[in-house]
Amino acid sequence: MAEKETSPIKVLRDRHGGMSDKLKAYFKDQNQIRKKMKDSLKGGAKTVPEIARDTGLESPDVMWHVMAMKRYGDVLEAGRSGDYYKYELKGDS
């Protein structure tokens, strides 16, 4: 099916006028945040406030992204420090 002249994904994209500017910004944001967070976690397991401090990101945003990354297997829970859980990068992700 991918061999056709206009591939189905192009049909979908054209029908919706491509990615909206809002989505482009959202996606770019997400990738930048993830990069900062991964860099920070390369230094070892951290709690959400520690990642926020380290990266300068807002802690509610860090919380959401940590949970998203945990859900899809990019980070793992790594014990607890006081009232906070710590998170670490999984394997080589």
């Binding site: 926020a52 509610p60 945990k70």
Partner: peptide, 16 residues
């Protein structure tokens, strides 16, 4: 659920 524990949304603290 989304967190797997009871945590608060702002910073993942275990609420006391």
């Amino acid at each position: 659920g989304p967190y797997g524990h009871i945590l608060r949304p702002s910073d993942g603290k275990v609420p006391k």
